[in-house]
């Protein structure tokens, strides 16, 4: 039981983070709070992907001097998995682009309805 908890408790913390963001997305009434929830959700997903690239006892994915020029064979277990890092680098930049568009739409809604609360907007839009 203790081994299971020690091997898996990181995943449970990522799932709790994702649940916080998901709850803010569907249950909060304010539009800016919903955008904050989207941000937390995406960060939790990126954290999960980074965590599956982690290897115990490995170092950064940057080749050392002896591996770079020497004639030694490269030890695979010595370096972290670099592929999820690259994909999540792209995902972070796309996250900020969607954040900008979402905030622009929120500003437009405030200009038209003079409020950011969802129920007031729905009442006024009828």
């Amino acid at each position: 039981m203790f081994d299971l908890v020690m091997a898996k408790y990181n995943f449970w913390i990522y799932i709790v983070l994702m649940m916080i963001g998901f709850y803010a997305m569907i249950a909060k009434n304010n539009l800016i709070k919903k955008i904050v929830g989207i941000n937390i959700f995406q960060t939790a997903i990126i954290l999960f992907y980074i965590s599956i690239s982690f290897k115990r006892g490995a170092t950064l994915p940057i080749l050392t001097e002896s591996d770079m020029h020497g004639h030694t064979t490269i030890e695979i277990a010595q370096y972290l998995n670099p592929l999820p890092h690259v994909l999540m680098l792209t995902a972070i930049v796309v996250m900020v682009a969607t954040l900008g568009v979402a905030l622009a739409i929120a500003i437009l809604i405030y200009r038209k309805y003079h409020t950011l609360e969802e129920d007031e907007i729905l009442k006024e839009a009828k």
Partner: peptide, 13 residues
């Protein structure tokens, strides 16, 4: 069903 956290021999690695 996930491999253990930090497993060097997991399928992704």
């Amino acid at each position: 069903d996930m491999p253990d956290w930090g497993d060097p021999n997991s399928p992704a690695n």
